[in-house]
Design a protein around this nucleic acid. Structure first.
Lengths: 180, 180
DNA sequence: CGGCATTGCCTAACACTGTAAGTCTTGACA
DNA sequence: TGTCAAGACTTACAGTGTTAGGCAATGCCG
């Protein structure tokens, strides 16, 4: 009886992402992932040491993807670019809720997530016109992440979350000394 | 053979909170909770329909507690009170990380959490001087929640999260048209 | 006071998790 | 052709939430 095809790391990640999208966080288990790949759960441990390692790979993947989306923005004033980046950040979080949740789990920030943070920092510093303006970047990111979190948990009634997003973002930028 | 003491709902909540504090989110399981109470896991289902219901009770408890902390602040200008409330919010989140995480899980916002939200809204509206200024309150809460989330996940290096908190809060308030 | 229903506990068991141990199959290379 | 490593397999364990069914003790009602 021949064994199934050899499984590649790329295929595993792809299947895992797909399961996350379709079934949410609960949809991704070692067994469901294995089944999607046509193998048995324990075989996955030949490729990833444990679930945590697999998740780390997913997080890295997500960070790279999001960072790319943010870096692609090249047109407009720094303020306009920041606004656009914020929109994309929010879109990403809502388009891939389970992946985003995974990315935002407590964990030491290294590698891809670190690079993502640097991108946010640069985008923000361009607006405040102060290099390495961590305070502003931190506030910005906090606002972004907090907003999408509250949004996802349905904290806002029908009373216009979208409006609050733009308003808050503007307030933050104004407060940090730059409008436009 | 006499059965152990009759278990009260209050005792269950108390034990659950304690487990949450000491062992984090993983420390609270139906079995560990039962053991802490001197009973067996299935017996818990006489008191709470399922784990979700139990968690809802914990969330409600946390919301009431936090709301009380925020409402206690009576002195100072609206801006000063808001600042102090923000500090307390952050302290609460860090003092009870697991409980706070539970409170911030996606779930329809009703009852105690709703009341908490109203308190935040009032605190914020007092500063912007516009009744029912949801946009400002939303931005504020997003900032608060986002900040503590990122803080908890270690997203900020040693580069002064504390500074970023005050700075961001001020920026937000300035941006919404009121300093002091 | 006696009977009875409700309440709260029990044990046993099911369907899931992640994961460890040990074995078989396959393809590549000496 | 023989050997070896990679990747699959089966089996099994401990732990999760949860259900089913039964015993004990409390409180109510005649």
């Amino acid at each position: 009886m021949p064994y199934p095809t050899r499984t590649t790391p790329a295929a595993i990640l792809e299947s895992a992402l797909q399961l996350l999208e379709s079934g949410g966080a609960d949809g991704l288990t070692m067994r469901s992932l294995a089944e999607a790949l046509g193998i048995k759960a324990p075989s996955l441990y030949r490729h990833y040491a444990d679930r945590a390692t697999l998740e780390a790979a997913l997080v890295a993947h997500g960070a790279v993807q999001l960072q790319t989306m943010l870096k692609e923005i090249a047109e407009g004033t720094p303020a306009a670019r920041l606004r656009q980046a914020a929109e994309r950040y929010r879109e990403f979080a809502h388009a891939h809720p389970a992946l985003y949740a995974l990315m935002m789990q407590p964990q030491p920030m290294t590698g891809a997530p670190k690079a993502l943070w640097n991108t946010v920092l640069k985008l923000s510093s361009a607006v405040t016109k102060r290099d390495d303006d961590t305070a502003a970047a931190v506030a910005l990111w906090a606002f972004l992440h907090g907003f999408v979190s509250l949004e996802r948990q349905g904290a806002f009634g029908a009373s216009g979350p979208q409006a609050g997003f733009a308003t808050g973002l503007t307030a933050l930028m104004v407060g940090f000394g730059k409008s436009s």
